[in-house]
């Protein structure tokens, strides 16, 4: 079955920590248009927060103008309540994606108190998480979820 694109939106913002709550609120509002279960909205917020926080915390680390570098979030809603979210940066990239996605793996210094659980959390709250990354070019994280809507319960 081919999914029909119903709505889409792209948000571009600088890699500032204040945009973590802003971007997850936008994603929640976008998902809300198909009236999904409250737990689905909560899941979307958590996963987006993890991916955007990674772009803020890791992607532009050690770069002088880190706070002015751009993060891009694209939201796409398909027929039947299928949601796809792509979060992209043009930062340093991930050398070993498999290793990065393991629970408790982090490259952040201990003083920053990262738990290394971001990707684990994304995978457990979304149906599908795809990571593409190239060293020195950036990272893109695709999050997919079939939302439980009134419509597809019929």
């Amino acid at each position: 079955m081919k999914r029909k694109l119903i709505n889409e939106c792209t948000l571009r913002f600088p890699a500032l920590s204040r945009n973590e709550s802003f971007s997850r609120s936008v994603a929640a509002a976008f998902a809300a248009q198909c009236d999904p279960a409250a737990s689905d909205i909560a899941a979307v917020k958590i996963a987006v927060s993890e991916a955007v926080t990674n772009a803020v915390v890791h992607a532009y680390r050690d770069e002088e103008d880190a706070g002015r570098r751009i993060v891009e979030m694209t939201l796409r809603l398909y027929s039947g309540g299928f949601l796809r979210i792509i979060i992209k940066d043009r930062g340093k990239g991930i050398e070993d994606i498999q290793q990065a996605m393991k629970p408790e793996f982090t490259t952040a210094p201990e003083s920053e108190e990262r738990s290394g659980l971001g990707f684990t959390v994304m995978s457990s709250f979304m149906d599908n998480v795809k990571v593409r990354s190239a060293k020195g070019k950036g990272t893109s994280v695709t999050l997919e979820k079939q939302l439980t809507t009134y419509e597809n319960e019929q």
């Binding site: 997850r24 917020k45 958590i46 926080t53 920053e112 990262r114 738990s115 971001g118």
Partner: peptide, 13 residues
Amino acid sequence: GFMDSSGVGLILG
């Protein structure tokens, strides 16, 4: 109302 893995880091710390 909301917590992500940063909260886990906060609790662990």
